[in-house]
């Protein structure tokens, strides 16, 4: 125990709070206060370096804090989620859609394991993408932190129990993501983008008279809400298709009844609509969930697609 690093002896909320504070301070300094030295002349002065350093230090602190007390079942979920992020994002870039589609896994973890785990997934996802395939995605890890955090919070507030509110949560997350990623795309990348389609949107905004930061945020606002709505939709659909046993293994999803309507629809097949999502979560810590009995009453749990659970 003597050589345990200091970060692990701290309470986990401390680095997470510190990291969020660093990111918020960076943002306030660059976007809202906007010192005089940032404007004019060649280049953009210290803005690029401040954006890069502040965002990355903040993300590192959040990863350290969120991972320190994470249960093993969540830790093993992370590589799968990150692989989903990277593969989907890479396919999107190859096909050339003007979207990102690189946060489906982040949303997935946010829904299952809560805001802190979602934030860690997002940050690590872009770090790994950066050190393995495309270095340009590394600076954007803070955007993914915001996405994972919001996915967890919306799940806790019960927005993901129905598809409609889930898509609305995705739209709201997209707006936040656009504002968070603005300084990075403007100051570090000069508004340019790996995707020609997204860069064209920036060009149109600049031609309309916005500065590079405004144009980058504007580009984000046209793309991100749609993109995050799709990500939330896909994540919710995937998690509903899995046997209930899987999501019930995660204490966060169980305690906040993240996927209420599915359990109800299986039992109330006789025609009754799902109950209103507003009623309070059953704080049920025991292994047998209040809804469907695991596996037994579930018609789609029996076929070959889910056979991996019992080898």
């Amino acid at each position: 125990m003597t050589n345990t690093p200091a970060a692990r002896r701290l309470p986990p909320w401390l680095p997470i709070t510190a990291g969020s504070a660093v990111i918020a301070a960076t943002y306030l300094y660059l976007v809202l206060w906007r010192p005089e030295s940032l404007v004019g002349g060649a280049g953009v002065g210290p803005a690029a370096l401040i954006a890069l350093a502040g965002y990355l230090v903040g993300s590192a602190l959040i990863i350290a804090g969120a991972m320190s007390r994470m249960p093993t079942s969540t830790v093993t979920l992370l590589p799968i989620a990150i692989a989903i992020n990277i593969v989907a994002g890479q396919i999107n870039n190859m096909v050339g859609l003007p979207l990102y589609l690189d946060s489906i896994g982040t949303v997935l973890v946010g829904l299952l394991a809560g805001p802190a785990a979602g934030a860690a997934t997002g940050a690590l996802s872009n770090v790994i993408w950066g050190i393995s395939i495309s270095p340009a995605s590394l600076p954007f890890s803070t955007t993914q932190v915001a996405i994972g955090l919001l996915a967890g919070l919306f799940a806790r507030w019960g927005w993901t129990r129905r598809v409609v509110t889930g898509v609305a949560a995705g739209l709201a997350t997209g707006v936040v993501a656009a504002f968070v990623s603005g300084p990075i795309s403007a100051f570090v990348f000069g508004g340019a983008n790996a995707s020609a389609g997204r860069s064209l949107i920036v060009a149109v905004f600049q031609a309309m008279g916005f500065d590079t930061l405004g144009a980058s945020i504007g580009q984000g606002l046209t793309v991100d809400p749609v993109d995050k709505a799709i990500s939330f939709l896909v994540a919710i659909v995937i998690l509903r298709a899995l046997p209930a046993r899987f999501s019930q293994r995660f204490p966060f999803a169980r305690a906040h009844a993240v996927f209420r309507p599915r359990a109800a629809s299986v039992l109330a097949r006789s025609g009754a609509e799902a109950p209103a999502p507003a009623d309070p979560a059953p704080a049920d810590p025991g292994p047998p969930p209040a809804g469907a009995p695991p596996g037994a009453a579930d018609p789609d749990a029996g076929d070959g697609t889910t056979g991996g659970g019992h080898r």
């Binding site: 093993t76 899987f246 991996g308």
Partner: peptide, 14 residues
């Protein structure tokens, strides 16, 4: 099948 299989592997792995 790809995603469902990968996610159900999580349990065994942990």
């Amino acid at each position: 099948p790809l995603l469902l299989g990968a996610l159900t592997d999580v349990e065994n792995r942990s």
